[in-house]
């Protein structure tokens, strides 16, 4: 993908570093610290979240015309550490983690299912099913595309950090995410197919420029957990919560696209997830998260924190998107 345009002094410093011949300027860490101090809310800060997104992307597919060596550049890692610390603090301030949950398989699975229980409140899924315009359906896909075109990748990083039952569970889920060996059934590829069906550009990263900070934050939290071994518990919890809030919403997403006349080829992605994630949520809740809690009981709070962080960011995305749509505005960035 192409490097996106800067959204402030910090992202400008990161992006200009990646396109320069020299190393990271020593002042970059100070620029990062300054950006954090003056940010009213790092979760919704375009400059901070874009900078973090760009730094994380070096570990996925990278950017065209940016040297691979930047991935492990000590100067950039120092910048990333400043941003991640602030990101984690912001999550800790906002996230509500249920207390008194035993580090036991059934208790952890029950807690995760309770945290993700379907609620009656406003939801993007219900809006998509019943009311979304064609343009809003396209916006929905654009928001989702930042993650869905690399679907499963952030959680895959946890595989070598797990063992036994939890590892087998994560591999079982991820193998299905990656199409069980068939490239055209990979979930990321099914999503690309849906984008093309809706007349969108399905190239990786094509719409990063258009998505707001909160959409990037929902992806960045997965990278934060995935890139650090110490957050393996949070990866398990995040994935479990993600799977547990997927089957029924995906049926509603499919309904929204069918309502606009799209055929089975375009709704395949959603139909696939209705079935797949009803399997995955059981494995993720009981074998991955529950299994890990029994193997490493001290990770139980991290498992619940990972789940709660993902749910918080989902809520923040909905709180951004729904009011915009209901008042007839775009939920995307307006240049």
């Amino acid at each position: 993908m192409d490097l996106p345009g800067a959204r402030g002094a910090l992202s400008a410093a990161v992006i200009s570093t990646l396109t320069s011949a020299g190393g990271t300027p020593a002042a970059a860490v100070e620029v990062a610290g300054h950006a954090i101090r003056r940010s009213p809310d790092v979760l919704l800060d375009d400059d901070v979240q874009l900078a973090l997104f760009v730094l994380d992307e070096l570990f996925y597919r990278g950017f065209s015309d940016v040297a691979d060596e930047w991935e492990w550049d000590p100067g950039l890692l120092a910048v990333r550490a400043v941003l991640e610390e602030a990101f984690e603090s912001a999550l800790r301030e906002r996230v509500v983690v249920p207390g008194g949950i035993r580090a036991e398989r059934g208790a952890i699975a029950d807690a995760l299912f309770a945290m993700t229980a379907p609620g009656p409140g406003p939801s993007v899924a219900r809006h998509v099913a019943k009311r979304a315009t064609l343009e809003q359906l396209r916006e929905f896909l654009i928001h989702r595309s930042v993650y869905q075109l690399k679907e499963a990748d952030p959680h895959t990083w946890a595989i070598p950090r797990l063992e036994g039952r939890a590892k087998a569970a994560l591999v079982e889920i991820q193998a299905d995410e990656y199409g069980g060996g068939a490239p055209d059934r990979m979930h990321a590829e099914l999503f690309a197919r849906t984008m093309r069906g809706a007349g969108l550009d399905s190239r990786y990263g094509a719409y990063v420029e258009q998505v707001p900070a909160v959409t990037l934050a929902a992806v960045n939290v997965m990278s934060l957990f995935g890139l650090h071994r110490r957050w393996r518990g949070a990866v398990a919890g995040h994935l479990a919560a993600f799977e547990m809030t997927s089957s029924m919403p995906n049926r509603l997403y499919g309904d929204g696209f069918r309502r606009h006349g799209f055929g089975a080829d375009t709704t395949w992605y959603f139909d696939e997830h209705v079935e797949a994630d009803a399997v995955h949520e059981q494995i993720a809740g009981r074998e991955l998260a529950g299994g890990l809690a029994e193997q490493e009981p001290e990770l139980a709070p991290d498992i619940l924190f990972g789940a709660a962080s993902g749910l918080l960011l989902d809520d923040l995305v909905a709180c951004h998107v729904l009011p915009a749509w209901k008042s007839g505005r775009t939920s995307l960035r307006v240049p």
């Binding site: 229980a117 079982e172 299905d176 029924m248 049926r251 079935e275 009803a278």
Partner: peptide, 26 residues
Amino acid sequence: RRRTTVALCRCGASTIKPYCDGTHKA
């Protein structure tokens, strides 16, 4: 059968029977 591990509906309310679609939770 499209996947290695499948979930069969036990509550009777799935819209994709015989497979589960998570409706038991609702």
